[in-house]
């Protein structure tokens, strides 16, 4: 069945220049492998299509049951240059939590 990431994970994001980071953390450690398998860099790039101008990188932190995504070109120049409300990418993480993934029932 399809589940939204918000039911399986929590998240926090921040910025480095024009790059937003999203740390995605499994609510239950047993769900971490599902995140690793389904929330790929390519899938995240498709999710944010039209919202970011650069590539998506992914790093794994199995010790924290977390994935870290770097979304390049996400902040209209970032920091003081950006014209966005979320110029520092503070809530980009919540937009990722809308993603639906397939979970075995």
């Amino acid at each position: 069945m399809k589940r939204r990431l918000v039911d399986l994970a929590h998240a926090r994001s921040g910025d480095k220049g024009d790059t937003a980071n999203i740390g995605l953390i499994a609510l239950k450690p047993k769900d971490y492998p599902i995140l690793v398998k389904q929330v790929t860099a390519a899938r995240v790039a498709r999710h944010f299509k039209g919202m970011i101008n650069g590539p998506v990188e992914r790093f794994e932190l199995p010790n924290l049951h977390a994935l870290n995504f770097l979304l390049h070109g996400a902040l209209d120049g970032g920091g003081t240059v950006s014209l966005k409300t979320d110029a520092q990418g503070k809530v980009f993480s919540t937009a990722l939590l809308r993603m639906e993934i397939e979970v075995k029932t």
Binding site: H10, A11, R12, S13, G14, D15, K16, N21, G23, I25, F59, E60, L61, P62, N63, L64, H65, A66, N68, L70
Partner: peptide, 29 residues
């Protein structure tokens, strides 16, 4: 604590400071 650890994170294998390089994939909570 995990939420704060991933805040503004780049490559977790190499958190570079003037003092040294920390590997965030080794942190146990």
């Amino acid at each position: 604590v995990t939420e704060q650890l991933v805040y503004e994170m780049g490559d977790p294998n190499a958190y570079i400071t003037p003092d040294g390089v920390a590997d965030f994939t080794t942190i146990q909570l």
